[in-house]
């Protein structure tokens, strides 16, 4: 059959197990210690991690026979576009809605899945974290176009297709936090991280947004600024939306450097 040639069709698990074991790292509140609960869930084809968690929520009994509180996690769109359900799954940071059990089992070769909260953000409870710092970064870098007003002022600026497509790629960032979790430099407030830098690139490329580019560049020259990037390139590998993050860092860094050298001439 023509569609079975390799990448076009999904790889199937040849020997699916009857049940899967799910190890969840849990925490009662921000200050309490982490512990692990293990659950057993009947296997079905095409499960994702969210379906597994929904099953556990309905039947919160551990493999060692304890009735426990239902695990808490964040979820919303389940289509990998809202960015809320990020977790560390079998050691890799990703969206739990698009993490398919079949793929995870194929990759690990056994029937266990481990779920942990991201480690770079305050861990509210179980798998839930607080990503407020990411939204604060957006404020810091002025990630918006300065409009004169939202009343009718006619059409926007014309723009080449290429610019639009490049901007579109950056505009798909859903503030999920994968890049910050994977970044060896990011640890809370020491480095603003690739997410905000990509948004600087997005707005500096827009004909109107460009008029305030210096505000954004200066925001990246602080102690936690772009110079902290250690060029590990982890961010671009884990980004679920495929943002060209290293390119954003490279191009923005060049802009920042030029601004740092010659910006004073324009004042």
């Amino acid at each position: 059959m023509s569609e079975s040639n390799g990448h076009l069709q999904k790889k199937m698990l040849s020997n699916p197990p009857e049940t899967i074991k799910v190890r969840i790292k849990r925490r009662e509140n921000l200050k309490s210690d982490q512990y692990t609960d293990t659950f057993e869930v009947p296997y079905r084809r095409n499960l994702n991690v969210i379906s597994v968690l929904m099953h556990i929520r309905k039947n919160p009994n551990t493999t060692d026979g304890r009735d426990v509180t239902p695990p808490v996690w964040d979820m919303n769109c389940l289509e990998q576009v809202c960015g809320i359900c990020t977790m560390v799954i079998n050691g890799h940071v990703m969206q739990s809605c698009s993490a398919l059990v079949d793929d995870l089992l194929l990759e690990s070769g056994d029937n266990t899945i481990s779920l942990e909260p991201m480690s770079k953000f305050p861990n509210v409870r179980d798998l839930k974290v607080d990503r407020t710092p990411m939204f604060d970064h957006l404020k810091k870098v002025h990630a918006w176009v300065e409009l004169d007003g939202s009343h009718d002022l006619g059409a926007g600026p014309a723009m080449p297709q290429e610019t639009q497509q490049e901007r579109y790629a950056y505009s798909r960032c859903m503030t999920c936090g994968c890049c910050l979790e994977a970044c060896p430099q990011y640890d809370g407030d020491n480095y603003i991280g690739p997410q905000a830098i990509a948004q600087v690139r997005l707005f500096n490329m827009h004909p109107t947004g460009e008029m305030n580019r210096e505000d954004r560049l200066e925001a990246l020259m602080d102690d936690d600024g772009i110079a902290n990037c250690g060029n590990s390139q982890n961010c671009v590998q884990v980004c679920p939306m495929g943002l060209p993050l290293t390119r954003a860092i490279y191009e923005t860094n060049r802009e920042v450097t030029v601004h740092g050298l010659f910006g004073w001439l324009r004042k």
């Binding site: 939202s150 009718d152 059409a155 505009s171 827009h206």
Partner: peptide
């Protein structure tokens, strides 16, 4: 039409024609 133009001004990367228009 004015709503679409407004979003364009806000920087929404709307797909464009060869002339660079919406």
């Amino acid at each position: 039409p004015a709503i679409i133009h407004l979003f364009d001004r806000m920087g929404v990367p709307f797909s464009r024609t060869k002339e660079g228009l919406l």
